[in-house]
Measured scan of single mutants.
Amino acid sequence: TRVETATETAWISLVTALHLVLGLSAVLGLLLLRWQFPAHYRRLRHALW
């Protein structure tokens, strides 16, 4: 049971790290898009909202 718990903890930390990385890359990508294509971003936002 001790090994299982350790594996579970490792998986949880791995998944958390993955989610953090994905979230950060998504935010960075959005910022980059907004910085590179302001007109396109505004049009996209206008279409979405």
Rank of each mutant, 00 (worst) to 15 (best):
T1S: 09
T1W: 07
T1N: 06
T1E: 10
T1K: 09
T1Q: 15
T1V: 14
T1F: 10
R2M: 14
R2C: 09
R2G: 08
R2V: 15
R2T: 15
V3Q: 01
V3A: 02
V3Y: 02
V3H: 01
V3D: 02
V3F: 02
E4A: 08
E4D: 09
E4V: 12
E4I: 09
E4Y: 10
E4G: 05
T5W: 02
T5Q: 00
T5L: 03
T5Y: 03
T5H: 00
A6C: 04
A6I: 03
A6D: 02
A6P: 05
A6G: 15
A6Y: 01
A6V: 05
T7Y: 10
T7Q: 14
T7D: 01
T7C: 00
T7L: 07
T7A: 15
T7E: 07
T7G: 07
E8V: 02
E8D: 13
E8A: 05
E8K: 01
E8N: 03
E8H: 01
E8W: 01
E8Y: 01
E8L: 01
T9L: 10
T9R: 11
T9A: 11
T9H: 11
T9K: 09
T9E: 10
T9W: 10
T9M: 09
T9G: 12
A10D: 05
A10Y: 05
A10I: 08
A10G: 11
A10L: 08
A10V: 09
W11E: 04
W11N: 05
W11R: 03
W11T: 05
I12V: 12
I12S: 07
I12A: 08
I12R: 08
I12K: 11
I12T: 11
I12Q: 06
S13T: 15
S13D: 00
S13V: 11
S13R: 06
S13N: 07
S13A: 13
L14K: 02
L14F: 10
L14P: 02
L14W: 00
L14Q: 05
L14Y: 03
L14A: 06
V15Q: 08
V15W: 08
V15T: 07
V15S: 04
V15H: 06
V15K: 08
V15A: 05
T16C: 13
T16K: 02
T16R: 03
T16P: 02
A17W: 03
A17D: 01
A17S: 09
L18I: 11
L18P: 06
L18M: 10
L18D: 00
H19C: 15
H19K: 05
H19V: 15
H19I: 15
H19L: 15
H19E: 08
H19G: 15
H19N: 15
H19Q: 09
H19D: 06
H19W: 15
L20S: 07
L20M: 11
L20A: 12
L20T: 07
L20G: 07
V21C: 13
V21H: 03
V21I: 10
V21S: 07
V21E: 02
V21T: 14
L22Q: 03
L22G: 09
L22R: 03
L22Y: 04
L22S: 06
L22D: 08
L22N: 00
L22T: 07
L22A: 12
G23E: 05
G23L: 15
L24H: 04
L24C: 07
L24M: 11
L24Q: 02
L24N: 03
S25P: 04
S25E: 00
S25R: 04
S25G: 05
S25N: 04
S25L: 11
A26G: 10
A26E: 06
A26L: 14
A26T: 11
A26Y: 06
A26S: 12
A26N: 02
A26V: 12
A26K: 00
A26F: 15
A26H: 04
V27S: 08
V27Q: 04
V27R: 01
V27T: 09
V27A: 08
V27M: 08
V27E: 01
L28W: 08
L28V: 04
L28M: 14
L28Y: 06
L28R: 01
L28G: 03
L28P: 00
L28H: 02
L28N: 01
L28K: 03
G29H: 01
G29A: 13
G29W: 08
G29I: 13
L30H: 00
L30W: 09
L30D: 02
L30C: 12
L30Q: 04
L30F: 14
L30M: 10
L31G: 04
L31Y: 13
L31H: 05
L31R: 02
L31W: 09
L31N: 02
L31C: 12
L32H: 06
L32C: 09
L32T: 13
L32R: 01
L32D: 03
L33V: 10
L33I: 12
L33H: 01
L33G: 02
L33K: 04
L33E: 00
L33S: 03
L33F: 11
R34L: 06
R34G: 07
R34Q: 04
W35N: 08
W35C: 10
W35L: 06
W35G: 07
W35Y: 08
W35P: 09
W35K: 07
Q36S: 14
Q36F: 06
Q36E: 07
Q36Y: 13
Q36V: 14
Q36C: 10
Q36D: 00
F37G: 02
F37Y: 12
F37E: 04
F37I: 09
F37T: 06
F37K: 03
P38W: 11
P38K: 15
P38R: 14
P38L: 13
A39N: 14
A39D: 14
A39M: 13
A39Q: 15
A39K: 14
H40G: 13
H40D: 06
H40E: 09
H40R: 12
H40C: 13
H40K: 15
H40I: 10
Y41S: 12
Y41Q: 06
Y41F: 14
Y41M: 15
Y41P: 03
R42F: 06
R42K: 13
R42N: 11
R42A: 15
R42Y: 15
R42C: 09
R42Q: 15
R42T: 13
R42I: 08
R43F: 07
R43V: 11
R43H: 06
R43L: 08
R43D: 06
L44M: 10
L44T: 06
L44Y: 07
L44S: 03
L44C: 10
R45H: 06
R45P: 00
R45W: 05
R45S: 07
R45E: 04
R45K: 15
H46L: 07
H46I: 07
H46M: 15
H46F: 06
H46G: 11
A47L: 10
A47C: 08
A47I: 12
A47S: 13
A47N: 07
A47E: 07
L48A: 09
L48P: 05
L48D: 05
L48H: 08
L48S: 04
L48V: 13
L48Y: 05
L48R: 00
L48N: 01
W49P: 03
W49S: 06
W49I: 02
W49R: 05
